[in-house]
Structures are given as structure tokens and as C-alpha cells.
Simulated assay, not measured.
Amino acid sequence: MFATAFHTSRHYILFTAMACLCVLLGGPSYAAGADSLFIAGDTYYEPGVSGPGWAWTDADHLELTGYVGEAIGADGDLVVTLVGQNSVVETHAPDADISMSGMEVWGNLTLRGSGSLTATGSQCGIHVAQALVVDGCTVDARADGAGVVGQTVAGIAAGSLT
């Protein structure tokens, strides 16, 4: 009987250790960062891309350096470093991955740096599903309400604002 109990407890320990290892190595990923970035009418699924006035350097970091253009959207958390004056305007394309906002982030958004951002949209200048943090930069977010019926119109709509 002792041999059976010892054998069973070893299996239990082995099973528990393997389960923990599977969770640590192959379980779902909860890493911060955007799964995709929508900018200037295009959608990107991997960081390391750039265009006039912007660079998506890694999953959670976008740098805007004098960017003037169409809306920016991210599926996940995003930190945006602002250098110089930047401006985003709602994309009116019917197939766009972003709707009625100058900037839309489906996670947390941090705006930082010494620069500024002007964001303009119909429903929201900036829409953030979770927390918006503004750190050391200037932000002007406006919504004009054009074409918005039965919905809230706000310069900034966020789960929380710091």
C-alpha cells in the first residue's frame, strides 16, 4: 500500500509541475502591447514599420515626430511618444478599422514626451477603452458631432484619465 501511495503522489507532483510549466511556457500571452496598429489608412500587425512622421518601434511603443495625417488606432495597449506638433484626424473610409475618432485605442493609452497632439473626430477626438495617461505633453482633443446620432460626443472618452 505504501508503494501505491508513493507512486500516486509522485504522479500528482509530476502532473502539477507539468501543468505549471505549460502555463508558464505555452499558456496565453498577457504581454502588454498592441496586436495591431491602424495608421494613415493601413493596418500593421508587426512592429518595426514607419512612415512620414511615425515609427512603430515595438508592440507597445509608437513615436510621432511631426505626424500630420489620418486617424490612429491600436488593438491593445499603446505608449505614444510625441515629438514636435502632431495632428490626427478621423478617417472617413467606410472600411477603416477605426470609427469616428482621431485616435482610438482598445486598451490603455499613454501619451508622453515634450510634443503636442491635436486629435479630431466626429464622435471622439481620443477614445480609449481603458486608462488614458497624459504625461508631460500637450493634448487638444475635439469632436464636432457630425453624423453622430444617439451617442455620446466627447473630446476624450476613456475608462479613466490621469
Rank of each mutant, 00 (worst) to 15 (best):
M1W: 14
M1I: 11
F2P: 14
F2H: 14
T4Q: 15
T4N: 13
A5F: 15
F6L: 15
T8E: 13
T8V: 15
T8H: 14
T8I: 15
T8R: 14
S9T: 15
R10A: 15
H11Q: 15
I13H: 15
L14H: 14
F15W: 12
T16V: 15
A17M: 12
A19Q: 09
L21G: 13
L21I: 12
C22N: 10
C22A: 15
C22H: 08
V23E: 13
P28S: 13
S29N: 14
A32L: 10
G33V: 00
S36I: 00
S36G: 10
I39K: 00
G41K: 01
G41Q: 01
T43M: 01
Y45N: 11
Y45I: 02
P47F: 03
G48T: 05
G48C: 11
W54I: 01
W54K: 05
A55G: 09
T57P: 03
D60S: 13
H61P: 07
L62A: 07
E63Q: 06
T65I: 09
G66P: 03
V68N: 06
G69P: 01
E70T: 11
A74S: 11
G76M: 00
D77A: 10
D77V: 05
L78C: 09
L78N: 01
L82Y: 02
G84W: 06
Q85V: 13
N86Y: 00
N86M: 03
N86C: 10
V89M: 08
E90L: 12
T91G: 09
H92E: 12
A93F: 04
P94D: 14
P94H: 14
D97C: 11
I98Q: 04
G102F: 02
M103P: 01
V105P: 00
G107C: 06
N108Q: 04
N108T: 06
T110E: 03
L111V: 06
R112H: 08
R112C: 05
G113D: 05
S116K: 04
S116Y: 03
S116M: 07
L117H: 02
L117Q: 01
T118H: 06
A119I: 03
A119F: 04
T120F: 08
T120K: 05
G121T: 04
G121H: 03
G121N: 04
S122H: 09
S122Q: 11
Q123R: 11
Q123L: 05
Q123H: 05
I126K: 00
I126C: 02
I126V: 08
H127P: 02
H127Q: 10
Q130L: 07
Q130E: 11
L132P: 00
V133C: 06
D135L: 05
G136P: 13
G136K: 08
G136D: 05
C137S: 10
T138A: 09
T138V: 07
T138R: 07
T138F: 03
A141L: 04
R142F: 00
A143N: 07
D144N: 11
D144C: 07
A146W: 04
V148R: 04
V148Q: 07
V149L: 10
V149I: 12
G150Q: 10
V153S: 05
G155E: 00
I156R: 04
I156Y: 06
A158W: 00
A158H: 04
A158Q: 03
S160V: 11
L161M: 12
T162G: 10
